[in-house]
Design a protein around this nucleic acid. Structure first.
Length: 823
RNA sequence: GGCGGGAUGGCGAAAUCGGCAGACGCAUUGGACUUAAAAUCCAAUGGACCGCAAGGUCCGUGUGGGUUCAAUUCCCACUCCCGCUACCA
């Protein structure tokens, strides 16, 4: 019996994710579809996800990050871009060292094993990385360039050594950068208060770039999330004001204060020093010194809002250089040594904190600023007036406006030599020395006669010795490695000692994305021409937790590299996307809670396609997502629906001729879906609604399946596979093969849509009476207003609502809506 | 305290330019298939009320006000939640 091709029915296949994913995993093992090429004539696109720390396992949070990036990378490939999509490992760092102490295993072994395990998971998820460009920061081929950058900065005076009070975490047994201190505690040990220790350390002069880092934020607006930019602005914390010297009464000593309100200085009724202020050594008696020390200690690890302002009179007086007035010098716990000059002038009438302090201790409160449209305050028990205004009781400056007074008064201070206009920043130089083993050795040598001598460039890398004892004792373990420490001075040839501290690992991640452009270069960190081709990064994707640390350091590095002449760009990434966190069943994922959702488990249970698609479907990518396995089952069911539909409808041949209303309906939905997803990729990345769109398309296909002509099926299935390719590479590839097509599906052209076919045949026009929906009319697009109005008024569902009322107004928005206003 | 983001069904969410609130999915319920279950397919599903039913009415996007023919969307005030930051002079 002959079967007409129209009726040919293929047996559907069940969706077996493990079979499909294993099959393609094996076939793709040695494939090289994802190689980027600097010589391509296609437009370039550099998409980058933040590189992970090799902790050993990928979890659902990583999967989210990479699924967003991978969807974009695949889409851009399909749109004909030459895509660079690399991956690497932020492989130095403390966990490896701690694991080494716990398990008696060298950090390198532990790290490499973790990398291997995570890379396996990466491949299982089929993320489209160019693994030929893999970078691992713990390899000498990489970190020698950290050392090289350090030497370049040393040459330019951007790296320097000084003794300073530094943040010390006793659990990490190392110094921390200011950026690594979170609410007075270590960023990795949130229960461990940071101590202050005086140590000789290496610093990078990020403050030299503070203004640039601030100013160039403007150029990132629109491309970076506003809140990241705000956080960076606040972190840099630029503040314009003046530095003014108060003379210590009866001495030549000057006490320098920083103020943003020099216009209020005639209201300064005392000077307050930070408890750590160096002058306290000479000013205070032993009892005073003890009180100051107690203040410092009691301040540690406390919420500043909870600490009551305290202070005591030092017994000394200072002289206001403008008024000549003699004011008492106090020591106050709310004055910070780390900001400004560590000393303030207190103007209680015009500053809330000063007011609180002076009120408490009965220090005179003297108003000197009146509101522009008011009079000078007389009731000094009232809260401080902190706005700008007009000066009074301020000698020759009286009656000036605050702003004008500030300019003139700081100029006067400069002229008279007791001060100047000054800008302070909250951001501090970046302390990079770490007293730990598993990091990049700092390439300098300490010579008894020549001092600090840089290791000559041709002797790089300074290789980190392997197989040594890790102590975690608070001193670098390298100190106990004589063959590392004992060297000859490169200058004089006499015995000298090598620096044993290692670099903060944020150095490693500050420039890794440049290395991807030229990962095997052994003469330079990278070929500037290659970087010029790929940079700036077109899209950087990562967690918002790096908004200040990594992202400000990398901006700094880029500017230094630009000044060295290595790169032309001044910012690393044109666009930044920060994805939301993944939480598990309502709680933040953490090892201690034991609710970490591991990527391998997901791949096992649901398949990589389902796991990827679910994290994209559950919410828009910038929002937090709650992982729930019932939700993932929904995606699994959906992929099964797609796969079964495809397998039972393949093998149809047809000329694409459209014969029935079902054909038209399905094609319309298909083209609408292509249009929607295309627009979304180009603008706002709401992959959740993209996937919902494909689901809607599937629902229409199921509803109309029996009425579809064979001739339209090939186009439908082909576009369906292509639409799924950025989200679910395995299933889409399997369908592609079922269709008898060759090659990787994600190297095909992105499907096109026909706006004409996507258009609805008729407009569905709601008819409202007084703003409430009462009926709907259907009319061809472009039906004139009068016609729509006439039909709306004649509508029998509408008429009862108009009965007995006067029609006052008719609003007609063609193709959209009719609203009849009656009363 | 400061800055930023948010609040929509039982749940995750959608509504892109002021124009049908709740797309899509989860969960739930009912039906089909099955000896049965699972799987699958179909359908219903914001709330209150009216109706035997078809169907209909009213309410509804954190709270209170405003602008508008029309507000989840714009404006004002407030409440709560989340994130970051914090005696920054």
């Amino acid at each position: 019996m002959e079967i007409s091709p129209q009726l040919k029915v293929m047996p559907e296949k069940p969706y077996d994710h493990s079979h499909i994913e294993l099959k393609w995993h094996e076939r793709w093992q040695n494939a090289s579809f994802y190689q980027a090429d600097e010589h391509s004539d296609k437009p370039k696109y550099y998409v980058l996800e933040m590189l992970p720390y090799p902790s050993g396992t990928l979890h659902i949070g990583h999967i989210r990050n990479y699924s967003i990036g991978d969807a974009l990378a695949r889409y851009k490939w399909m749109r004909g871009f030459n895509v660079l999509h690399p991956m690497g490992w932020d492989a130095f760092g403390l966990p490896a060292e701690n694991a080494a102490i716990a398990n008696k295993r060298p950090p390198r072994d532990w790290t490499l094993q973790n990398i291997a395990a995570m890379k396996k998971t990466h491949r299982r998820f089929a993320f489209s990385y160019d693994w030929n460009r893999e970078v691992s920061t713990c390899e000498p081929e990489y970190y020698r360039w950290n050392q090289w950058f350090f030497l370049k900065m040393l040459e330019r005076g951007l790296a320097y050594r000084k003794r300073a009070l530094l943040n010390w975490c006793s659990k990490c047994a190392t110094v921390l950068a200011n950026e690594q201190v979170v609410e007075g505690c270590c960023w990795r040990h949130e229960d461990t208060p940071v101590e202050q220790r005086a140590l000789e350390q290496w610093f990078l002069k990020i403050t030299d770039y503070a203004d640039q880092l601030l100013d160039e934020i403007k150029g990132l607006e629109g491309g970076w999330p506003e809140r990241v930019l705000t956080m960076q602005r606040n972190w840099i914390g630029r503040s314009e004001g003046a530095e003014i010297d108060f003379r210590l009464e009866g001495a030549e000593t000057r006490i320098r204060v920083f103020t943003t309100r020099v216009d209020t200085i005639y209201g300064a009724t005392c000077v307050i020093l930070a408890p750590e202020h160096p002058l306290n050594e000479t000013l205070l008696d032993d009892a005073g010194k003890a009180r100051a020390k107690a203040m410092v200690d009691s301040r540690a690890n406390r919420d500043p809002g909870d600490i009551e302002k305290e202070g005591f009179f030092s017994g000394h007086y200072a002289v206001n250089p403008y008024s000549g007035e003699r004011v008492p010098i106090w020591v106050g716990n709310f004055v910070l040594m780390g900001y400004g000059t560590g000393a303030i002038m207190a103007v209680p009438a015009h500053d809330e904190r000063d007011h609180e302090f002076c009120q408490k201790y009965g220090i005179h409160i003297r108003p000197v600023i009146r509101p522009v449209d008011g009079t000078l305050a007389t009731d000094t028990s009232k809260p401080a007036f902190t706005d700008d205004g007009v000066l009074e009781n301020s000698g020759p400056w009286s009656d000036l406006g605050s702003e004008e007074a500030r300019a003139k008064m700081s100029a006067y201070a400069q002229e008279k030599g007791f001060g100047k206009a000054a800008i302070t920043y909250r951001i501090k130089d970046w302390g990079i020395s770490r007293q730990r083993y598993w990091g990049t050795p700092i390439p300098v040598i300490h010579c008894p006669s020549c001092g600090v001598v840089p290791v000559p460039e041709d002797q790089l890398p300074v290789v980190l010795p392997e197989r040594i004892e890790i102590t975690g004792s608070g001193r670098s373990p390298l100190e106990n490695v004589p063959e590392f420490v004992n060297v000859k001075c490169p200058h004089c040839g006499e015995p000298a000692k090598r620096e044993t501290d290692t670099m903060d690992t944020f150095m490693d991640s500050s420039w890794y994305f440049y290395r991807y452009c030229d990962p095997h270069n052994d003469r330079m960190p990278f070929d500037p021409a290659k970087v010029a081709y790929w940079f700036e990064i077109d899209q950087y994707i990562g967690g918002v937790e790096h908004a200040i640390l990594h992202l400000i350091y990398s901006r700094f590095f880029t500017k230094v590299m630009r000044d060295i002449g290595l790169v032309k760009n001044s910012e690393p990434a044109r666009r930044l996307f920060t994805q939301g966190m993944v939480i598990a069943e309502g709680a933040k994922m953490s090892k201690s809670k034991g609710n970490v959702v591991g990527a391998d488990m997901l791949a096992e249970k649901f398949g990589a396609d389902t796991a990827r698609m679910f994290v994209l479907f559950a919410a828009p990518p910038e929002k937090e997502v709650d992982w729930r396995s019932e939700g993932a089952e929904g995606i699994y069911r959906f992929l099964g629906r797609v796969y079964r539909f495809a397998t039972r409808n393949v093998g149809q041949t047809g000329d694409g001729s459209v014969t029935g209303s079902a054909d038209r309906k399905v094609l319309r939905k298909l083209h609408q879906t292509v249009q929607k997803i295309t627009e979304d990729f180009e603008t706002r990345w709401h992959f959740n609604t993209c996937i919902a769109g494909i689901m809607e398309l599937m629902n229409v296909l199921y509803a109309e399946e029996a009425n579809l002509s064979a001739s339209v099926k090939p186009e439908i299935l082909e576009k369906l596979a292509l639409l799924l390719a950025p989200f679910a590479p395995y299933v889409s590839q399997e369908i592609w093969e079922e269709l008898g097509k060759e090659g990787p599906v994600f190297r095909q052209c992105w499907p096109s849509f026909d706006p004409e076919l996507a258009k609805e045949e008729e407009a569905e026009i709601p008819v409202q009476v007084n703003g409430k929906l009462r009926s709907k009319i259907y009319a061809a697009f472009g039906t004139p207003k009068e016609e729509l109005e006439r039909r709306a008024l004649a509508d029998e569902k509408v008429r009862p609502f108009l009965a007995g009322k006067q029609l006052k107004k008719v609003i007609v928005i063609p193709d959209k809506l009719v609203n009849l206003v009656a009363g």
